[in-house]
Design a protein around this nucleic acid. Sequence first.
DNA 1: AAAATATTTCGAATTTTCTGGAATGATAAA
DNA 2: TTTATCATTCCAGAAAATTCGAAATATTTT
Lengths: 106, 106
Amino acid sequence: MDILTQANRLEALGNPTRLAIYRALVRAGHAGTPVGKLQDAIGIPASTLSHHLAKLCACGLAGQTREGTVLRCRAHYDVMEQLVAFLAAECCADATAAPCETSACG
Amino acid sequence: MDILTQANRLEALGNPTRLAIYRALVRAGHAGTPVGKLQDAIGIPASTLSHHLAKLCACGLAGQTREGTVLRCRAHYDVMEQLVAFLAAECCADATAAPCETSACG
DNA sequence: AAAATATTTCGAATTTTCTGGAATGATAAA
DNA sequence: TTTATCATTCCAGAAAATTCGAAATATTTT
């Protein structure tokens, strides 16, 4: 439940291109999708896509497994669910965690 | 439900300092908190804080109302709930919206 | 081992973000 | 109207993100 970890994930999804990539992974379901097909779908240069995928993987939101010459990418749903749970628990109206202790709550 | 709008909000929360600011706003509840108290709580220069608050307000996640010389800041819970709903609906395992239409789903 | 395919890493330019001191603007009190 | 307080805007430097062609790496096929 590290805040910096969650911030890193939010930042990863905050880039419109990466959000599009991540959504394509989600639509691909548990089977995932090869990098090449992602490239066709999103329409950006391979090197750019690779950088974005690296960021999504580094923050835990996605993973890759090699299948021959192809790299299959998958969304890590459990990590996204963690993130959503974090937002719901600590950033919404009825936030229960991290109760007010500072002078900022006056 | 504009994707760019949601990406903008995710980006806003993706900065650790801004996430801390936003969480302080949430902890302050519906009453909100003045900029000055936020500054005491977070411990950053006024101009830096002001920039971050401006970004949170610009993307809709927060708002400000003047009370005399004081500016009171509040989290916009409905906007955050929209964002969480977006993530749950389009970025999680059982995503129903935006069904697979592209070649990226093979 | 050479060729073909898939993808990453390198290198470098461009753009954007982040930061904070100084100046300015807004409001209230004396 | 002067003074004081609160907060933003201006300005500019430093750091980081974004982009993508070219070169390199990984794997399979012939």
